[in-house]
């Protein structure tokens, strides 16, 4: 049971890990000859992370058989904070330990114990979304940050004409519109108008970190159904978040 892979952009890798760590404390990487996967629920079971990285996303990749690696994301995050621009990062499991090497001007090796995490098989989500919006991730990030000023819930609305991010509370109201003509909106499909609210605490954690990974985000949702936020990773693969709605 062993594998080794090198990710060529340590900073990008760090952002991926940080965006997962925003929601999850511990999770299991499933490393197979095809690539790396991770799927986990946050402790309150409101949000789920689904990461898929094909072996081609890595500079070097070797894995003979499926290996499961339980890690504490908090610890890993701290290690990866030490990455500099132009560093590479290497992961290797051998002898029951996880070795993380940061390869730059010098090679620094960190060794982490593997932790045993009860494996809960999570279903592959197949939600029937009625709206699909692809837009600039930093535009979404700005809108979410605006909403945080006002409320603790954010409402997503998709109509024929436009996609809107709204927030309201006794402090006031906010509405950010993305019309079909808006420069930020790349793709827009609505089969049925959709409205749903989500926790800003979670939405903020997701968007603020992940916007660094990818320039584009795809938001899919339906009325009072979970939302899926998909970030395409430039080197290949994707990071998807699912978040349960808040019912009013």
């Amino acid at each position: 049971m062993s594998f080794r892979f090198v990710f060529s952009d340590a900073r990008e890798w760090r952002y991926i890990i940080e965006s997962i760590a925003a929601l999850i404390e511990e999770a299991t990487f499933v490393v197979t000859p095809e690539g790396v996967k991770l799927r986990a629920l946050d402790p309150s079971r409101v949000a789920m992370v689904d990461l898929e990285l094909p072996s081609t996303a890595f500079e070097e990749y070797s894995c003979e058989a499926e290996t499961r690696v339980g890690v504490n994301f908090d610890d890993m995050k701290k290690i990866l904070k030490r990455c500099k621009k132009d560093d590479k990062v290497e992961y290797e499991v051998a002898g029951g330990k996880l070795k993380i090497k940061i390869i730059g001007k010098a090679t620094r090796s960190f060794v982490l114990p593997l932790i045993d995490i009860g494996a809960e098989t999570l279903p592959t989500p197949r939600v029937a979304f009625t709206a699909r919006v692809k837009l600039l991730s930093d535009a979404v990030e700005e809108a979410i940050r605006d909403a945080e000023v006002i409320a603790d819930t954010v409402k997503l609305e998709a109509s024929e004409e436009m996609f809107a991010i709204k927030a309201m509370s006794d402090k006031g109201d906010l509405e950010v519109q993305f019309g079909r003509e808006s420069g930020s909106l790349i793709e827009y499909e609505v089969t049925e108008p959709a409205v749903a609210s989500y926790s800003l605490e979670y939405m903020g954690d997701i968007v603020k970190k992940s916007a660094k990974i990818a320039d584009l985000v795809t938001i899919e949702f339906a009325t009072n159904k979970p939302v899926a936020l998909t970030f395409e990773i430039p080197l290949g693969g994707r990071l998807v978040y699912y978040l349960a709605p808040r019912m009013e």
Partner: peptide
Amino acid sequence: VRKTLLDYL
């Protein structure tokens, strides 16, 4: 919140 994400999925 009434249902967890898992319930929806």
